[in-house]
Computed example of a mutant assay.
Amino acid sequence: MKISLLGGGSWGTAIARLLKFKGHEINFYIRDKKVVEDINKNHRNSKYLPQVDLGELIATNNIREAISNIEMLVLGVPTNSIRPLLSEIKPDINEDTIIVNLAKGIEVDTLERVSEIVEDILPNNVFVSLSGPSHAEEVAKDIPTAVTVSSKNHQIAKKVQEAFATENFRVYTNDDLIGVEISGSLKNVIALAAGMCDGLGFGDNTKAALATRGIYEISKLGLALGANPHTFNGLAGIGDLIVTCTSMYSRNRRAGILIGEGHTVDEVNKKIGQVVEGIKTTKSAYALSKKYNVIMPITEKLYQVLYEGFNPRIAVSSLMTRAYKEEIEEIFLE
């Protein structure tokens, strides 16, 4: 297939490499001219994915050239950059072009998932979300990985599955687009909180409790939006949550560690050097919890830490001393 991939961060680069090595024709758009030159000259993305051989992958900073006569458009840019980017290139996108999204987040201003943003701008194009436990650093090294793709159009999801799958990159399909997008977005919020616990010097017990209650929070909001409860037990749900809460590859976990150590959000963003989706998604998730009247204590406390200057240690203490309750609540029976 002729595929355009927009965005030269670590994840976008890993997927561009995967698709190129599989034999697709890849138009790889990156805004940063220095990164483009590095890829084309040295076959490396030294800024975002160093020490990974990109083979014959070629990049460009000419977006019109990148999106010309393509069959599939893969979005590898941060969630809050998608609307302005698509608005810019909308006149050049054919209605038959499949839109595949790699980002995991919820737009702050509108509280829309990426599928809803794309539908606003390109209502006639089929949208597919790719999600699951998949660090770019491992995918780029061909370490076995499993993900899921989701769309309202099952046949197109199958087509994307076939386009992306390799012997080391196993792709499942899941028709629950809402659940897949909510899981992928909110796991970053819980990973931030897990990292914060690490930064505070807490242990594995704390992180395990937080992750377990975190998937419960994610599922509550997902069900309020119409998701399938089984999605939260799959790759996009518990799978992605595990890898993001435990790995140092996770930008969100690393950012959380810095917050727990006392750094400000501005300091964290500078130190990480790439977009930390969970920081903005915490704001979006908190707003959604209020909009749909869903109680999400972890999200609420993290929001207070990030946006209201609340002390992280007191935030964890307040979670531990909440009113006692039954563990197994009737969410899935409701």
Rank of each mutant, 00 (worst) to 15 (best):
H135I: 09
R253G: 08
L102Q: 06
Y48H: 14
F232M: 08
H24W: 00
D142T: 08
E25V: 11
Y292P: 01
E327Y: 12
E329V: 14
I26P: 12
C245Y: 08
S134P: 00
I190H: 04
I143N: 05
L19T: 11
S289I: 01
D92W: 14
T212W: 08
A193S: 15
A165S: 15
R83D: 11
N269F: 00
I298R: 06
N311A: 02
K104G: 09
D109M: 04
I67E: 11
G260Q: 07
K283E: 14
K104T: 09
E267M: 12
E25R: 02
S81W: 04
M196W: 03
V35S: 05
A315P: 04
S4E: 03
R113C: 09
E71C: 01
E300V: 01
H154P: 01
E326G: 00
H154L: 13
E95C: 02
K41L: 14
E327W: 08
V77T: 14
T281F: 10
S317P: 00
S129Y: 00
L122W: 00
I331C: 00
E138W: 02
G201M: 02
N80D: 15
S151W: 03
N27F: 13
S318P: 00
T282N: 10
E138M: 08
T246F: 12
D96C: 00
L333I: 13
E330K: 11
A194E: 04
L302W: 07
R83S: 14
S219M: 13
L130E: 01
D240Q: 12
I63S: 05
T282R: 04
I298W: 10
R83M: 06
Q155S: 13
E334H: 09
I15L: 14
F202T: 04
A227G: 02
N62T: 06
F28R: 02
K325C: 02
A209H: 02
A236D: 05
T212G: 08
G234P: 05
L111I: 04
D176T: 13
M320R: 01
I58G: 00
K34M: 13
S134V: 04
T231C: 09
V100Y: 01
L5Q: 05
G8S: 07
S247Y: 12
I215D: 09
M320W: 06
K22C: 08
V114Q: 01
P144D: 02
S185T: 07
T231I: 11
L225P: 02
I314A: 03
T246M: 11
G7C: 08
A209L: 14
K290W: 02
N45M: 12
L319A: 10
I298Y: 09
G23L: 09
S183D: 09
K104S: 12
I331V: 15
K280Y: 15
E88R: 13
G222R: 11
H43D: 05
V139W: 00
Y172S: 09
L18T: 13
Y286R: 05
